Amino acid sequence: MSVIPEIQGFFSDLTAIRHDLHAHPEIGFEEKRTAAIVAEELRGYGLDAVHEGIGVTGVVGVLNGTAGAGRTIGLRADMDALPMEEHTNLAYRSQNPGRFHGCGHDGHTTMLLGAARYLAANRDFKGTAMFVFQPAEEGLGGARAMIADRLFERFPCDEIYGLHNSPEFDLGEMAIFPGKAMAGAKFFDIAIKASGSHAAMPNKARDAAVIAMTLGQSLQTIVSRNVDPLKPAVLSITKINAGSAYNVIPETAALAGTIRFFHDDVGDLVASRMHEIASGLAQSFGCEIDVDIRDVFSVLENHPAETEAMRQAACEIVGDDKVYTGARPTMGSEDFADMLHVVPGAYCWVGHGGTVPLHNPGFVLDDAILPIGASLLARMVQRRLAA
C-alpha cells in the first residue's frame, strides 16, 4: 500500500477531527457545527477561498495550483448523520440523542479535509482543486440543494469525484466500475382513511388495519408481476402504523417505504401501479387512500473515462490486486448521482475493518481508512492536474 507519507504523518490529527465530528453528529441541513469546523480547518490550511452556506449548510473550498491556470477537479464529501441512536461503547460516541454517524460521513468529511491539507502544502499542480462538503445526503436532497444554489455556476468544475467507506471490503481494498453503480430511489407515504368501531363489532367498521394489510400484500406483486424480470427493482414497506387500543378498530392507517431501480422507466412504472392499486382498493373497501411518492435519488452512473482515472489512482494507493472493477452495482442509493448528472466524474468504495453494516446502531468506522481515502482524493487532483 502506498498511502501518501505526509497524510499518514498527520493521521492522529485526522483521527481527532473524526472523533469530534462523531461525538457531535448533526442530521441533514442542521450541520452548522460541522460546517463551521470544516470552514475553520480549510482556512487554517491556507486555501485561496472558503465559501459557506451553499445549499443551506454546504461548504466549498477553492485551492489554486502554482503551476498555472488549468482545469478544475472537484472532490466531494457528505457531512450529515442519521436520525437514529448509537449503540456502541466508543469513548467518542454520540452526545446528541437520536443522532448517529452510522454511515461514516464523519469519515468522508475527515478524509476530504486530509486531502485538502495535503494539497494546500503541495500546490505544484496546474489548475484548481475544489472541495465540496455537502449537507443532507441521507434522503433530504443535499446535492440538489447545492446545485439549485448554483454550485457549478459559481464554481465551474470539469470533473468531480467522491467515495464511500464500506465494511463489505477489507481494509486496503477499493471497488469502482463504470456505468450504473447505485440505484435510484423514490420514497412513499400512504394514508388510509376509513371508519372505526368497537373491535367486537367489525361489521360496523371499514377496518383500516385490514385495508393496510391488503394493500401491503398487493403492492408486493408489482415487482414480480409488472416489472421486466431483467430490470432489477425493489419495493420495500418499512413503516406501518395503525390503531391505539386492543378493542378499537382503527379508522386510519399509514404505510411508508421506498422503491429502488436502475432504470427510470421502472421507477415510473412502479409508482404508477402503486397509484392504480391504491385507487382500486379504495373503491373496493369504500375508503380513502392517498399515495404520495417522491423522487429522492437519481441512478448513480459513473462516467467511463473518469472511472478509469479513479481506478488508476486507486491502484497507485492500494495496488492493482486490491482494486475490484467487476460489475457490482448496489440497490443502495447516493445523491452524489445528481452531481454526476451535471459534471462527469466517478464514485468508489473504500474498504475498512469491521463486519457491522452501515445504518446499524452498532456500526463502527475503522480509523485506519482515513489516510487511505484522503490519499486517493489527493491523488485524483495531482493526477488529473499534473503539471
Rank of each mutant, 00 (worst) to 15 (best):
S2Y: 11
P5H: 08
A16H: 11
R18K: 06
D20A: 08
L21M: 13
A23N: 05
H24V: 09
P25R: 07
E31I: 04
E31T: 04
A35T: 03
A35E: 00
A39N: 11
L47A: 07
L47T: 09
A49L: 10
E52V: 10
G58R: 01
V59R: 01
V60F: 02
V62R: 04
N64A: 12
G65F: 02
A69Q: 10
G70T: 08
G70E: 07
R76E: 01
A77D: 00
M79C: 02
N89V: 12
Y92I: 12
P97A: 13
C103K: 01
G104C: 12
D106N: 14
H108C: 00
T109F: 05
Y118A: 00
L119K: 00
A120V: 10
M130I: 14
V132W: 01
E138Y: 02
G139K: 11
A145G: 04
M146F: 05
P156F: 12
C157K: 02
C157D: 03
L163R: 02
E168L: 14
F169C: 04
G172A: 12
G172C: 13
E173G: 07
M174F: 05
A175N: 08
F177Y: 08
A181T: 15
M182S: 02
G184L: 13
A185K: 13
K186F: 10
A191S: 12
S197N: 14
M201R: 15
P202N: 11
P202V: 13
K204R: 14
A205L: 08
A208L: 06
A209S: 12
D228Y: 07
E251N: 10
A253P: 03
A256G: 01
V266G: 03
L269W: 04
A271V: 04
H275S: 07
G280H: 08
F285I: 13
F285A: 14
S298P: 10
H303R: 15
E306N: 07
T307D: 13
Q312I: 13
V318E: 06
D321S: 13
Y324D: 07
G326L: 13
P329F: 07
T330M: 15
D335G: 05
L340K: 10
A346L: 03
W349Q: 03
W349L: 10
H352D: 05
H352W: 12
G353V: 09
P357S: 02
P361L: 01
D366S: 10
I372V: 15
A378C: 00
A378S: 04
